[in-house]
């Protein structure tokens, strides 16, 4: 396992081939409603250290496909660290060291043959604060495809429209695609960022508190959007808002202090009858 992402030497094409093969050799994506979803991301005994400090402690988890998985826990419990491990966003941190296994469709995410840029094409990310580029709405959404050199391969206009429709923003911005993304409201900016994340057609969308900076109406729109996105994508969302996790997720993972994943189960089970007293104490506000 690589200590961080800086050592990789492979090309995007190689990574693309490795990941695509892994996806294609998996089970069919078509499944009935009662069938168990297949696993997209698997962690086994995953430890993450920042220098001497352990941020994640032996995490085992299987993230199901086309489901919303919420990650909750107190500040400093490692939930964002785990999220950022999935598409190697921690690679830029020199002191960060990853031990154990983290697999995307069975492929070791930290294998030297994996190019993180290509990985992030399959596993996109949306951040806490809306961060559109100081470009037009159109260019914001097209950015990922252009950077990946795919602007010539795809019908860019169609791809932008599709992404904006998927992000439930098309009807609000279709007549102002040349306007700056920064002119949109906070909630619209966050949906623009979601459109930007899904334009390259990823498989997984990671969201790090995507609605924490939004008012209740914009939050409701993003939550509705997350629910819709799960039909096409696998969504993993970190949130401090437990009611939000309860509302929008299918599965909930509870991390507690020390970077330990204490409970991972169906969301209704976690919020109605958790197995662990420590989880009960945390979600009922008796923690600490």
């Amino acid at each position: 396992m690589a200590t961080n992402g800086k050592a990789d030497t492979s090309s995007e094409e190689e990574t693309e081939t490795i990941i695509s093969t892994a996806i294609e050799t998996g089970e069919s994506r078509d499944r009935g409603p009662t069938e168990s979803p297949r696993t997209v991301v698997t962690a086994r005994d995953l430890d993450v250290y920042y220098g001497q400090e352990r941020a994640l402690d032996g995490v085992d988890i299987e993230i199901p496909e086309n489901r919303v998985t919420a990650i909750i826990g107190p500040s400093g419990c490692g939930k964002s660290t785990f999220l950022r491990c999935i598409n190697r966003m921690n690679d830029g941190i020199d002191a960060c060291r990853v031990d154990g296994e983290l697999r995307f469709h069975g492929t070791d995410v930290y294998d030297q043959g994996i190019d993180p840029v290509a990985l992030r094409r399959k596993i996109g990310m949306v951040f806490q604060k809306p961060n559109p580029f100081p470009k037009s709405i159109y260019d914001n959404v097209a950015y990922g495809l252009r950077v990946q050199g795919r602007a010539g391969e795809v019908d860019l206009d169609a791809a932008v429209e599709r992404a904006l429709r998927s992000a439930a923003l098309w009807d609000e911005v279709k007549d102002q695609l040349d306007s700056s993304g920064l002119d949109l409201s906070g909630g619209q900016q966050q949906r623009l960022c979601i459109a930007r994340a899904i334009a390259p057609d990823p498989e997984v969308i990671l969201m790090d508190e995507p609605a924490s900076a939004l008012d209740p109406i914009a939050t409701a729109k993003v939550e509705d959007l997350i629910d819709d996105l799960a039909e096409e994508y696998t969504v993993v969302i970190v949130t401090h808002n437990m009611q939000q996790a309860a509302r929008i997720s299918d599965r909930t993972a509870v991390f507690l202090t020390g970077g330990e994943l204490v409970e991972f189960d169906d969301t209704a089970k976690v919020f109605e009858n958790p197995d662990h007293d420590r989880v009960e104490d945390y979600i009922t506000g008796k923690f600490g």
Partner: peptide, 9 residues
């Protein structure tokens, strides 16, 4: 209070 778990039950 939006109770959960034991409190909700």
């Amino acid at each position: 209070q939006q109770p959960v778990a034991g409190d909700l039950r």
